[in-house]
Design a protein around this nucleic acid. Structure first.
Length: 324
DNA sequence: GAGTCGTGGCA
DNA sequence: TTGCCAAGACT
């Protein structure tokens, strides 16, 4: 991968990252942002990175974009087989763009958050028609595509094109919270500060910065985990502020936890699952059977129609979009 | 900025 | 069993 097009940095956010004291940790006097050595992370990554299919040499920007979209809030184990199918079936953006929404939603299966599939389908069309069927490498251009936000745009720029683009996901935030700030875990996201924190850690060189971004994520996923961090296997434990502080427990504001049982999300999921499993349009009664609360059921049906995740046929049946 | 949007595995 | 959590985006 890393085709290194020698772009002179993307100068995303120069200064204003300085945050002097950070008085949260009395015992640590390490200046934030200078303790992590790029080479220690990148060489660890070279020998310990998991052999994920989208990391294989030759994976296109499209392959990386599909993987990053599928991986949003979704574990690697569930994404991998679906990604393989998609790459075999739709190797280029224009291939996906040519498929119907119904086909795309069925292929998405139970990965969850099916609107991601619809947005990726839209993005594929835009890439095919406006970008020569090649996923853009520029962060700002990527941000203009549906379904691509701060994280995904930077992940594609870094992992597919070897750009220096600070990548901030939940894993990186945890690693930075511990290694740099000495906290037990990251608090709620603060996009501007989080981005500045990571930007301060990355070296100027594109290729090294991109690999360090991947390494920070991998470290958070496989070593610096939420519940049982394997500090004895960590390549930067000797530079870790959390380690030096005696690994204090997380003491920030309580993290938001989403409910699921009984919510509209559950009902929507059940309704859509009926359509995914059906050959074609289904009668209202089939949908009514999955949830007893008629009021909530109807509301969810409406929202699914509004979101473009299902359609109603002339004769009042329900179907996935584009198959009626 | 807080809420919403799926699904399944694991401690 | 149940709460927590998993490579976020959008309104």
């Amino acid at each position: 991968m890393t085709t290194d097009s020698s772009q002179p940095g993307d100068s995303s956010q120069p200064g204003d990252s300085s945050q002097p004291g950070d008085s949260s940790q009395p015992g640590t006097r390490s200046p934030a942002g200078s303790a992590l050595k790029p080479v220690e992370l990148t060489s660890w990554f070279d020998t310990h990175a998991r052999d994920l299919p989208w990391r294989a040499t030759g994976t296109t920007g499209w392959g990386v974009l599909v993987s990053e979209t599928m991986l949003q809030q979704t574990p690697v184990r569930r994404v991998q087989p679906i990604w393989e199918e998609w790459m075999a079936r739709w190797p280029r953006p224009s291939d996906l763009a040519a498929a119907s929404q119904a086909e795309v939603l069925r292929a998405w299966g139970k990965l969850g958050y099916p609107r991601r599939a619809l947005r990726l389908h839209e993005a594929a069309s835009a890439i095919a028609t406006e970008h020569g069927d090649v996923v853009p490498a520029d962060v700002d251009t990527l941000l203009g595509l549906p379904g691509i936000g701060t994280y995904t745009a930077r992940a594609v720029a870094a992992f597919a094109y070897g750009r220096r683009a600070p990548v901030v996901d939940t894993n990186v935030r945890r690693v930075v919270a511990r290694a740099v700030h000495g906290a037990g875990d990251a608090g709620n996201p603060s996009p501007k500060r989080d981005l500045a924190d990571v930007d301060a850690l990355l070296p100027a060189d594109d290729t090294t910065a991109a690999k360090m971004s991947a390494a920070l994520m991998e470290l958070g996923q496989t070593v610096c985990t939420v519940r049982s961090p394997a500090c004895e296997s960590c390549p930067i434990s000797h530079d870790c502020a959390w380690q030096h502080a005696g690994r204090p427990a997380y003491s920030g504001p309580p993290k938001k936890v989403q409910r699921f049982a009984g919510t509209d999300r559950q009902v929507r999921g059940l309704l859509l699952d009926v359509l995914r499993g059906a050959e074609g349009p289904v009668a209202r009664e089939r949908l009514d059977a999955v949830w007893s609360d008629a009021g909530q059921r109807d509301q969810c049906l409406d929202s699914l129609l509004t979101d473009g995740l299902m359609e109603q046929t002339q004769d009042g049946l329900f179907a996935l979009p584009g198959e009626s």
